[in-house]
């Protein structure tokens, strides 16, 4: 389902975004990807949405260990120490 002259279509490109972001595309395919994206606003936007998705997921990370969990672990640690 390639476009004219073996260029990547938008529909093909969206399947390759993760391979692209993971730097796993072979050089020729990466070049075709880059070439497409520089001239296609829709795919630029799609790529940006995928990057935005990663940022939203990254922001879900809980930064602090809950004090209750910490206390429970410490108690388990002390119990373990006594048992050894």
């Amino acid at each position: 389902m390639s476009g004219k002259h073996g260029e990547l279509t938008c529909q093909e490109l969206v399947e390759l975004v993760t391979d692209y972001l993971e730097l796993r595309l072979p050089a020729p395919e990466r070049a075709r990807f880059d070439e497409h994206v520089t001239t296609c606003r829709g795919c630029q936007a799609h790529l940006e949405q995928m990057r935005q998705t990663l940022r939203v997921a990254g922001a879900l990370r809980e930064e602090a260990v809950a004090p209750a969990a910490r206390e429970a672990l410490l108690a388990a640690f002390r119990g373990w120490k006594r048992g050894v």
């Binding site: 389902m1 390639s2 476009g3 279509t9 938008c10 529909q11 093909e12 969206v14 399947e15 975004v17 296609c40 606003r41 829709g42 795919c43 630029q44 936007a45 799609h46 940006e48 949405q49 935005q52």
Partner: peptide, 26 residues
């Protein structure tokens, strides 16, 4: 598919097969 097929022009499209019907925006 990663993006619904309806979002793209069909393979039979004379000008832009496989291109966005309505391009997304960030």
């Amino acid at each position: 598919p990663s993006v619904e097929a309806e979002r793209f022009r069909p393979p039979s499209d004379p000008d832009w097969p496989g291109h966005w019907v309505t391009p997304p925006a960030a």
